[in-house]
């Protein structure tokens, strides 16, 4: 059969059977052909994606759609997963239309994760503007700073978690403004090499609003962190931040870290719960140091000092 097949001349029950024989990837591709094809796909085969991730790379981008399948076995139910990769290539749709169409046909209204991995095409910022709910944003090394800066401006308000390997801010004020974003989680990698572009003070962390702030390879010394704790004790203005974690390059000297804090050590299993139900619901630790502010606010300091992990954690109890 070399001439194009008139698919829609088939009776509806046969069309349903055709669509039931198609792989999810093919149903999605069919839906991308036209608005009518999309409408038809939705009538003939109901797809329910568990999540959709967007990956932006140098001049190309794709969506990864995750499906969960249930297999009823005689004595139990087996769940297994499959992923479909949908390229934005020769589909005749803008990036935002393409994302919207895939979300529509897979009945998945939001993106779970967005990965920015390189220099995108011009219309990507428009596409990002159309996104209204993202769980996780990953900004990988190598993204042009101008794009990262725009992407953060657009996506920070609609994102819960940000992991970034690039700090696109030119000055401290811009960085402080970004730290005030109401995220659930912000993790910045290679801080030490990224932050020297501008002056940075641990005081900036005091005003940070993510529930959990993690600076990997932080730019500050143990003495600086001690000063941060002293400032926290003096401070009476609270940000949203409940957990601050920083990896440092030097050995953590206990005396330097706790100097002047009147810290009380403890040895017991404790669980720290975040005030909001988020992807990482709790942290546990079995030893550390408690400090208390004049207004009664309590916090716990823990640290790990075994190479290669040299990390200091600061938990603020509500």
């Amino acid at each position: 059969m070399t001439t194009p097949f008139p698919l829609l001349r088939l009776p509806r029950l046969a069309l349903i059977s055709v669509f039931m024989h198609m792989e999810p990837n093919e149903v999605i591709m069919f839906a991308l052909l036209s608005k009518r094809a999309n409408k038809l796909s939705k009538c003939l085969r109901k797809l329910s994606a568990s999540s959709i991730d967007l990956v932006v790379e140098n001049d190309s981008h794709h969506l990864t759609v995750l499906f969960m399948h249930r297999e009823e076995l005689p004595f139990n139910t087996n769940n297994f997963w499959s992923t479909e990769t949908i390229l934005h290539k020769n589909v005749g749709l803008s990036v935002s239309e393409w994302i919207e169409r895939v979300q529509d046909v897979t009945n998945c209204k939001s993106l779970k994760r967005v990965d920015l991995r390189g220099s995108p095409r011009l219309d990507m910022c428009d596409a990002l503007s159309s996104l209204n709910n993202i769980s996780e944003l990953y900004i990988h090394p190598g993204c042009p700073e101008s794009f990262v800066e725009k992407a953060l401006r657009i996506l920070s308000p609609v994102t819960n978690e940000i992991n970034m390997w690039s700090i696109p801010f030119e000055n401290r004020e811009e960085f402080r403004t970004f730290l005030k974003t109401n995220l659930d989680y912000l993790s910045i990698y290679y801080c030490a090499s990224e932050i020297p572009k501008f002056e940075f003070s641990m005081d900036d962390v005091l005003i940070a609003n993510p529930l959990k702030l993690q600076l990997i390879e932080g730019p500050s010394s143990v003495e600086d962190i001690n000063q941060f704790f002293l400032n926290w004790l003096q401070n009476t203005i609270d940000s949203r931040m409940e957990h601050f974690s920083m990896n440092v390059r030097e050995n953590v000297n206990e005396d330097n870290l706790l100097n002047g804090l009147n810290a009380v050590s403890f040895l017991e299993e404790r669980t720290f719960h975040y005030s909001k139900e988020i992807d990482f619901p709790f942290e546990t630790f079995s030893s550390g140091y408690d400090i208390e502010r004049v207004d009664g606010k309590k916090a716990t300091i823990t640290f790990v000092n075994s190479y290669p992990i040299r990390r200091i954690d600061f938990y603020i109890w509500s």
Partner: peptide
């Protein structure tokens, strides 16, 4: 129907 699906 499977034959048609295979075309795609």
């Amino acid at each position: 129907c499977e034959r048609i699906a295979r075309m795609l």
